[in-house]
Nucleic acid binder design. Sequence first.
DNA 1: TCATTAAAGTTAT
DNA 2: ATAACTTTAATGA
Length: 198
Amino acid sequence: MVIDEFLLEAKGASVVEYDISDFIFLEDDIVRYYYQIVTGKVKLNNYTDTGKEILQSIIDEGHSIGEYLLFLNDIGSPVNAVAVTRCKILKLSKASFLELLREQPNLGLDINRNISEHIHFRHIINNSSTQCAAQKLKTLLDFLKIKHNKTEPYSFLVPLTRQEMANFTGLCVETTIKTLKKMEREKLVRIVNRKIYY
DNA sequence: TCATTAAAGTTAT
DNA sequence: ATAACTTTAATGA
């Protein structure tokens, strides 16, 4: 968890509920709140002119959403924040959030860690743009596996749909499926009941 | 090598 | 039911 939930509530945060596919904020919105997920999952994305989704990140329980925007003044969000599942999200005004950080500077470290994680991920994914399909997928899977502290072969159940993997890597679903099957033949992944183990 | 299109099968709600 | 996801196959850049 990035910031203790009781602490946020004591500072005036309220819990807001979102349904699947609800937008928490939209591209170009100026974000005025600190958002932290209590339950559920959220994604950051963009949509191309042809309607294709570009996934920027999937954010799990306990993590904050686009918090870095609060350190930039009057900058529109470059991404949409969309509820992937039903969500309960703590929402604290920017002013209270900044005040909280001044009162408890050590919290800055936790915020920093969260932001750094996202930058690191984006760099890794961006850097894979020169690679072939199999490498792109492997890069994505490697990152997720390490993040979940898994090391043994096939010990990591990939928590993404093929569609999501495609939207992360910029590949189309069909190529993603075909490539994953090739990787299965090469013993890089194991597929059981459509679940992918890496 | 990979995107696109189409068509059909499967799963989840 | 119906929408979302998965799969296969053909075609073309």
